[in-house]
């Protein structure tokens, strides 16, 4: 088995595909494979329109997963995603009341709220030493309680408001024939990749993820990096909330719930090392597409809810075991 693997990997290695790059490739291959399978089960699945719709849905997962990628790169995790996202969507409609002239302030307020939640997470983790799992878990509860309490369980007068038309139009619109949500995602992919690969911030992020203590002793401001990464995660969750409410028109309770599992799954499929220090957002983006394509294939096969859950879990496990094997061979 090991020999067989080595024989297969060596040419890839020579072609400049180290493990991290291979994983990005795997994630893309998985997405393509799923589209092929989908086309077989359900002809028309791989039509441009269908692919477009899938990638569009994937962009929401991808945005949340961008934030998740940032924190996972330093070995953290953000479990507060669901209610930061949900809170953001409700805050947008209640603060804008569906009016365009209030939209800019509402957008700023909403993104600011996401950033603030991330800031609190980051400060507690970096300065008070609260484990990331506990802090972001607590933050999820805090955001849930605040959102429910302040909106009276989404019964408040403003809660039934729609997203401001300008936001809804922007999400539904298109640029050069590409849906604008997708354009935004492409921009985010470019920016995040640039940030991680070519900036001092990215370099310090990877350094911190590899070994926070050694990075600290090398003069890296580990606390600041940690805080900034959690702020980014909060920001991206809020951004996804804005897009979702723009896409669907109205906010609802529990709309953030699927995004925790999906964002983590995308990060895993994308080949980011959960203990930090390795991985790339490109792979995660492919992972998001793979994930949504998987769901769509299962839907096309009329797979009931429970079956989807089970297959989700099994796919993640298989990938983890596969990557784990690769890890052991290095």
């Amino acid at each position: 088995m090991a020999k067989w693997n080595a024989a297969l990997l060596q040419p890839l290695e020579r072609a400049g595909l180290n493990r991290d790059r291979r994983r990005i490739l795997y994630a893309f291959l998985a997405a393509i494979l799923l589209f092929a399978v989908g086309e077989i089960v359900h002809p028309g699945f791989a039509s441009p329109g269908s692919i477009g719709a899938i990638v569009m849905v994937a962009s929401f997962v991808g945005l949340v997963a961008a934030g998740q990628t940032f924190v996972v790169l330093i070995g953290g995790i953000d479990l507060s995603v669901p209610w930061v996202l949900n809170g953001a969507s409700i805050l947008l409609v209640t603060s804008s009341l569906g009016q365009d002239d209030r939209a800019p302030w509402a957008l700023l307020l909403t993104l600011g709220m996401g950033a603030a939640a991330g800031l609190v997470n980051g400060v507690a983790i970096a300065f008070l030493g609260v484990p990331a799992v506990v802090m972001t878990l607590a933050m999820n509860g805090i955001m849930e309680g605040l959102t429910l309490g302040l909106s009276g369980g989404l019964t408040c007068g403003a809660c039934a408001s729609y997203a401001p038309p300008v936001v809804a139009d922007a999400v539904h619109g298109s640029l050069f024939g590409i849906p604008s949500a997708l354009v935004l995602w492409l921009v985010v992919i470019a920016l995040v990749s640039l940030l991680l690969s070519f900036t001092t911030f990215g370099r310090r992020t990877y350094a911190t993820g590899n070994n926070p203590h050694a990075s600290y002793l090398a003069g890296v401001n580990v606390r600041l990096i940690t805080i900034l990464l959690y702020v980014l995660s909060g920001l991206f969750a809020a951004l996804a909330g804005i897009l979702l409410v723009g896409f669907g028109g109205q906010a609802s309770l529990g709309m953030g719930d699927p995004y925790l599992f999906q964002s983590i799954a995308a990060v895993v499929i994308g080949g980011v090392y959960m203990l930090g220090g390795r991985g790339h957002y490109l792979g995660v983006a492919a992972g998001a597409v793979t994930l949504v394509a998987l769901v769509s294939v299962l839907l096309a096969m009329n797979m009931p809810d429970y079956g989807r859950n089970i297959i989700y879990g099994i796919v993640i496990l298989l990938l983890l075991l596969l990557y784990g094997r690769e890890e052991a061979e290095d």
Binding site: V130, M135, A138, G141, L146
Partner: peptide, 12 residues
Amino acid sequence: LYQSFYEGLFLV
């Protein structure tokens, strides 16, 4: 409705 809020706060 605020229950989760207090639980989260208390946990931290």
